[in-house]
């Protein structure tokens, strides 16, 4: 069974995103970039499924600038077998990403796609579902447990107030939620080994996909700042203040 794992390079989750002074976007210059945390969980899951013997090959794919190659090397160091970089300097919207992934899937024919439920930059939570719709594949989003068997995946999903279990026929799209697993750190020998693994670069234009943006970003602004708070001396003061604020 072959798994495709799309991964995205984003601002490291521990770095505060800063708005550019001209409000045209987020300042990405000299900012630490890492693999999107939900993508890390997806890679980890694919590798664990391979370690269990269910999966035979894990292919990581990323769509982005040349530096997204580093993100793919991280996936290879964790245990992906090979990687594909679809190189572009454009910042693609989820619909365009889904179309590019569909084109890659036509070339790779995976049995299952495991991907993060959302990227922590755009926060859209849309690409996996869009990809499933474009392919007319079943989807199981926000997975907290995944059992793969020939032709079938049983997925436990995080829903409002509990868990739902779905059985989907393969091929299918599974998106990873936080509880699916805890990603490992790549060991130094594996990081070295990853440098020798295959990483194929394709230019976005080669794929012949319409990636024109549908949304025009007019402005990116800082959210309103919180007014300065006060320090209270005792728990009794605190309760009195909360009563005055009308929240108790």
């Amino acid at each position: 069974m072959k798994v495709l794992v799309p991964v995205k390079r984003v601002i490291d989750y521990n770095v505060k995103a800063r708005v550019k002074s001209d409000e045209s976007g987020i300042d990405l210059a000299n900012v630490k970039m890492s693999m999107n945390p939900f993508c890390e969980i997806a890679v980890e899951e694919a590798v664990r499924q391979k370690e269990k013997g269910v999966v035979t090959e894990v292919v990581a794919v990323s769509i982005g600038p040349a530096q997204a190659g580093e993100t793919l090397r991280t996936a290879l160091a964790v245990g992906a077998d090979r990687a594909i970089l679809v190189q572009t300097s454009e910042d693609l919207e989820p619909l365009a990403i889904a179309k590019v992934l569909k084109a890659i899937i036509a070339l790779e024919n995976p049995d299952v796609v495991i991907m993060g439920k959302q990227a922590i930059d755009g926060d859209n939570n849309a690409t996996g579902q869009m990809l499933a719709a474009l392919l007319d594949w079943p989807q199981a989003t926000f997975a907290s447990a995944l059992e793969l068997a020939p032709g079938k995946a049983t997925v436990t999903r995080e829903v409002d107030g509990g868990l739902q279990t779905l059985a989907v026929d393969l091929p299918a799209i599974v998106t990873a939620d936080l509880r699916l697993n805890e990603p490992r750190y790549a060991s130094l020998p594996n990081i070295m080994k990853a440098k020798k693994k295959e990483l194929v670069i394709k230019e976005l234009a080669e794929l012949g996909v319409d990636t024109a943006p549908r949304l025009k970003v007019l402005k990116v602004a800082e959210p309103p700042k919180r007014g300065g708070g006060i320090k209270v001396e005792t728990a009794t003061d605190l309760v009195a203040n909360l009563k005055t604020a009308g929240v108790l």
Partner: peptide, 17 residues
């Protein structure tokens, strides 16, 4: 969040999330 992007993709439009 689970179903809305599917509708967007089928209509070939962006989702505004």
């Amino acid at each position: 969040k689970n179903f809305s992007p599917r509708i967007a993709a089928k209509l070939d439009v962006a989702q505004i999330s």
